[in-house]
Design a protein around this nucleic acid. Structure first.
Length: 902
DNA sequence: GCGGACTGCTTACCT
DNA sequence: ACAGGTAAGCAGTCCGCG
């Protein structure tokens, strides 16, 4: 982007560079109703004076879109990267909320509750493409003045009134349909205006227009040329690839931000004050910003010791006589910074400040916090609650490789940046100013560091996901992957003038599944797992299909539109193993979007992220992109089969896995035909024993030609250890690295005592180079196991914690009504001792000899331990490896066969 | 009344 | 609130046992 100085920018603004926070927002229009169901920013209002949005704004990033109730219009938040401020632009196109219905206007006219609705505006007739039945239909657009009139309100909104009242006048024989009434207004605004959150816009003479970034446009061209030339993609996907590439190639700004953490006085040391009541004072607040400032705001209180302030380093310490002044200082910061980072700020910090401010007599306009049902947003900035972001399962698993388990500031920080929370010597309300300040500052520091590590990885990831999903940053950071996918698919519907079907329309038109799942209670059959060939196998190539399911969705043209389509002539295009057929006439929207995204990741971003010839900064950006794509693609098949997904289409999900089974089966057969031994496989992978180059080449070529699928050698193991169990193996790489999959010895809940010995075996195995060396290694492994056994048998453990199982409580203890598993028993014992137990807590327990045979580790004594139970556990854990090595646990520990039976 | 065979529940994992 | 498949341990149930 052309670099301009701040001064130049200021001159563009005519009226000078007034700070947004200096403007007093007006009173808001109405309270958020308690019954409000949709968590929505529609309820929250940006109130600002007319001159808030400049007539002209240099290129800025669109970071958020919302609805302003007082103006009854949409607004857009733009982050201007040079002044590093957010500017709010209000819609000037008169765009209004609406829904579609199949009832013609002349009939709707007779529904009094519709036409007399206080927010009713007018009817229009539109033609839309109905993809389920491959036809154009006429629909009535019912336009309203207030989004809540469409949906959202539990009673009296148009979405409900139309189907309720229509039969009263016209009888029951006509099926009344209402479409697109559950889409949040600001999303609707994004779709209709074709806005791209995360991308560059400028304001010229009051108009919001996209900003073309020349350099990035060149990069987009390059991506497309490369991919089309190299791979000769089906040409109908090229426009999609170009669209995605533009979203991904545009630069990301440095995001000026501040992290916030508050501490609250508590009269009861073990209780955190309720933020809804906010009855206690805020005694400390820390602010750590991207411009290197660290501030600690402390409330003066009677009888609190000063403590040693010298340990607070470069932070500025500010004492406040009045809590109101302290809050005002916080609010000034919230108004100043464009991005506010918290850890659990939705539930606690901002929520507390919001209510506390009310209690202290702040007027609504003086408080920059807007409270929704579950989220706290900010009037002039973007609030990112990292707790919500890190809680996202897809982010946890695919972006951060399950490095953290429990989503607490302490655990996430420990896992990702190697920092932890500080311990307090006394309850927060009693410690010295210095200790309180240090503790609070540390939290704000690590909260900030969670957004800055790896060159601002998290902020960049959010930016990329914002672009892909076409959602406001606030939403993308809080919602799950199915919402992201829904959003960009809805966008595409509107772009193509397609009617967005209701979920029941899809089920009605496409029916349900036909195969039987192996697991009870599941809806359809999933993937194939090949029975492993037990033993030690040297020189194993693991081949896999790159993004198998997304590839299937692309190549086989899967989507709600194409699976079991309405055309007679497509019925012969059957999915093997199912009664379903696939459309031969049209490309499904999902197939186009997912397919193009897959090709971009596989063909461009993944290789670029590893390309050593690039600058590390560039490579880093590509790696952010490819991991964001990974998160989306990994979920793209699952959403078809998820009832919560708006385009839920069970036969499409079923077709995907059925084709997957067919592909892997064919590939196994082909491999065997080529004389390769297939020793294991799971879903999209094949373990090939000692294949030669030529065999691999033939197989890859065959897959490409016959299946249209990219098969690649994912990794080569020097050797693998397979037991007879599926999803259980160990592989040693040429460089001695070890992959351990599914083995009990690696599971997180097992006692550290056992884990350590398992690790020792793993380490020993990593040093085995040849089959001959195995014999020596086996002896060592026997020794390791014997030592473990003897230590247990002789009760020689140093710390009882080493013997603790750590199992996560899936729900509150009372909710286990079918059975009482051991960890729940332990949890109940803790609860009886007055210790608070929540769902998601990790329970540490040991096995003991007497009823009830388990005890929370903190209550157990060493002598109670049931050693035989542990030895039994040892046996099953090590058997998973010993099986393959032809060793017997009982022989190793010195039991003869005879003794085993006595 | 007890033990074995069985099913179901629960957690942790794999793709 | 993405999917299904697998392993393992334990809780609970049923049934046979002169």
């Amino acid at each position: 982007m052309p670099q301009k100085s701040l001064d130049e920018f200021c001159s563009l603004f005519g009226g000078g560079n007034k700070k947004i926070n200096e403007r007093a927002p007006s009173e808001s229009q109405e309270e958020v109703g308690e019954e409000e169901i949709e968590e929505s920013m529609e309820e929250q209002q940006i109130i600002a004076r007319e001159d808030l949005a400049p007539r002209d704004l240099p290129p800025s990033y669109l970071v958020s879109v919302g609805y302003d109730g007082s103006r009854a219009s949409a607004y857009v938040k733009l982050y201007e990267p040079v002044s590093q401020r957010i500017y709010v632009w209000h819609d000037n196109t008169g765009h209004k909320p609406y829904l579609f219905t199949n009832i013609p206007p002349e009939e709707l006219q007779r529904l009094e509750r519709v036409v007399n609705h206080p927010s009713f505006d007018h009817f229009e007739v539109n033609e839309k493409y109905d993809a389920l039945y491959d036809r154009n239909i006429k629909v009535t657009k019912v336009v309203a003045r207030d989004p809540l009139a469409i949906g959202g309100r539990p009673k009296g909104c148009l979405r409900d009134i139309i189907p309720e009242d229509y039969p009263l006048i016209f009888g029951n024989n006509n099926e009344v349909k209402v479409w697109e009434a559950a889409i949040k207004y600001y999303q609707c605004y994004i779709y209709d205006r074709g806005l791209l959150p995360g991308m560059l816009y400028k304001i010229e003479s009051g108009e919001l227009i996209p900003y073309m970034h020349e350099e990035s446009e060149k990069a987009v061209k390059q991506v497309i040329e490369n991919l089309i030339h190299v791979k000769s993609e089906p040409s109908d996907l090229s426009p999609y690839m170009e669209f995605w590439a533009r979203l991904l190639e545009y630069p990301a700004p440095k995001m000026r931000r501040v992290s916030l953490d508050i501490e609250v006085y508590s009269p009861v040391a073990t209780r955190v004050p309720d933020p809804e009541e906010a009855s206690q004072p805020v005694i400390c607040t820390s602010l750590v910003s991207s411009d290197g400032r660290k501030r600690v705001l402390l409330l003066k209180r009677e009888g609190i010791e000063e403590g040693d302030m010298s340990s607070l380093g470069d932070a500025s310490i500010e004492f406040y006589e009045s809590e109101k002044d302290l809050l005002q200082s916080i609010f000034n910061v919230l108004n100043d910074y464009p991005f506010i980072i918290t850890f659990n700020g939705d539930d606690f910090d901002l929520n507390y400040l919001y209510h506390r401010a009310k209690n202290l007599g702040f007027s609504r306009s003086e408080v920059p916090i807007e409270k929704g049902q579950k989220i706290c947003s900010l009037k002039y900035s973007v609030h990112i609650d990292l707790y919500r972001f890190f809680l996202n399962r897809s982010i946890q698993i695919y972006a951060f490789a399950q490095k953290y388990r429990n989503v607490t500031l302490d655990e996430v920080a420990e896992a990702l940046i190697g920092r932890s929370k500080l311990e307090l010597s006394k309850p927060v309300s009693e410690v010295s100013y210095a200790e309180l300040a240090k503790y609070c500052l540390n939290d704000a520091e690590i909260t900030f560091a969670l957004t800055s590590f790896d060159d601002d990885l998290v902020m960049k990831l959010l930016m990329v996901l914002t672009r892909i999903s076409r959602m406001p940053m606030e939403d993308v950071s809080r919602q799950g992957v199915s919402r992201w996918i829904r959003s960009f698919m809805q966008y595409e519907h509107r772009r193509r003038n397609m009617l967005i079907p209701n979920d029941e329309d899809i089920i009605e038109a496409r029916g349900t599944t036909a195969t039987k799942a192996i697991i009870k209670g599941k809806k359809y059959m999933g993937a194939i797992v090949v029975k492993p060939m037990p033993g030690v196998h040297f020189n194993v190539a693991v081949m896999d299909f790159q993004s198998l399911y997304p590839s299937i969705i692309k190549v086989y043209n899967l989507g709600y539109q194409t699976v079991r389509c309405v055309h007679e002539e497509c019925r012969d295009n059957l999915v093997p193993g199912t009664p379903h057929w696939i459309c031969k006439k049209h490309r499904a929207l999902e197939s186009a979007l997912i397919g193009s995204l897959r090709d971009l990741r596989v063909g461009w971003y993944k290789p670029k992220a590893k390309d050593k010839s690039l600058l590390s900064e560039q490579r880093n950006w590509y790696s952010v992109i490819q991991s964001a794509l990974k998160v989306i693609l990994n979920a793209s098949y699952g959403v078809f089969g998820a009832e919560v997904f708006d385009l839920y289409c069970p036969p499409a999900a079923e077709a995907t896995s059925a084709i997957g089974r067919n592909i892997i089966t064919q590939t196994i057969n082909k491999a065997r035909e080529l004389g390769i031994e297939v020793i294991y496989g799971d879903t999209d992978s094949l373990f090939l024993k000692n294949p030669n180059r030529e065999q691999i080449r033939s197989l890859v070529e065959w897959a490409e030609k016959t299946l249209g699928m990219e098969l690649e050698a994912d990794k080569i193991y020097r050797y693998t250890v397979l037991s007879s169990r599926k999803k259980n193996y160990l592989g040693v790489f040429e460089d001695g690295g070890v992959d351990v999959k599914g083995l009990t010895g690696k599971k997180r809940h097992i006692p550290p005592f056992i884990k350590r010995y398992f690790d020792a075996i793993e380490d020993r195995l990593s040093r085995v180079k040849t089959p001959a060396e195995f014999e020596v290694a086996k002896k060592d492994i026997e020794r390791i196991i014997r030592e473990c056994y003897m230590k247990l048998k002789n009760r020689e453990w140093e710390d009882i914690n080493d013997l603790a199982f750590e199992v996560v409580l899936g729900k509150v203890p009372e909710a286990y009504d079918k059975t009482t598993p051991q960890h729940v028993k332990a949890a109940l014992i803790l609860q009886a001792k007055g210790i608070e137990i929540k769902a998601g807590d990790t329970i540490k327990f040991v096995k003991i000899t007497r009823e009830p045979f388990v005890k929370p580790v903190q209550l157990a004594a060493s002598k109670e331990i049931d050693v035989d139970k542990y030895i039994g556990y040892l046996r099953t854990t090590f058997d998973q490896v010993l099986d393959a090595l032809n060793l017997e646990f009982d022989e190793i520990i010195g039991l003869t066969r005879l003794e085993q039976f006595m």
